[in-house]
Amino acid sequence: MTPETKGQLLAALPRLRRFTRALTGNAHDADDLVQTVCERAIRQIAQFTPGTRMESWLFRIAQTAWIDHTRARRVRADHASAVLATSDEAGGGEHEAVDRVHIQRVDAALAALPEEQRAVLALVCVEEHSYAEAAQVLGIPVGTVMSRLSRGRLALRQLVDSGVGRV
C-alpha cells in the first residue's frame, strides 16, 4: 500500500474501534475484531478505491467479519440475555440516580437486538453515516436501512428504559 493509504488506515483506527465497540458490545471482542479487520484490509488493500471514505470500507469489512464470527459461535444470544438479566439485578433500583445510564446497560440493550439492526444503529447513530452511506456499507436498500433503524431505535429505548429517566 502507499504511504498515504497507510496514513488513512492509521487515522481511521479510533473510529473503527468505536464502530466495533458498538457492534460487538464489549471492548475485548471489539479490539479482536479491529485486529481481524486490519489484517484483512492490509491483505486486500488493492480493493480499496482511493478517494473514497476509508472508514466506510473498514466498517464493511468489520460487519462482514463479525457476521461470520457470530454465525460460527451461536452462543452469543444466550450470553446477551444473561448480561441483560445481570445488569437489571445489578442496577440497584432506587439507589441509582434516575438520570444516569451506564455503557453496560446500552451494551446489554444493543445485544438484545438482531445483529442487522445493531449494525445500522452503529453506522447511523454512532458513526453518523447518512442513510445512503449506511446502505452502501451494508449492501442493502435505503428503505431497509430505514425500517431496521426505526425498529432498532424504538426497541433500544424500551430496553434501556429502566436505567434512563427523564427529568
Binding site: 465497540r21 445510564v101 452503529a122 447511523v124 447513530c125 431505535r153 424504538l154 433500544l156
Partner: peptide, 15 residues
C-alpha cells in the same frame, strides 16, 4: 433519545 444514548455511550471510544 436512543440515538443520543448511543452517541453518548460510544462516542468517547474514538478519543
Amino acid at each position: 433519545d436512543s440515538a443520543i444514548l448511543l452517541r453518548v455511550a460510544y462516542g468517547p471510544v474514538a478519543d
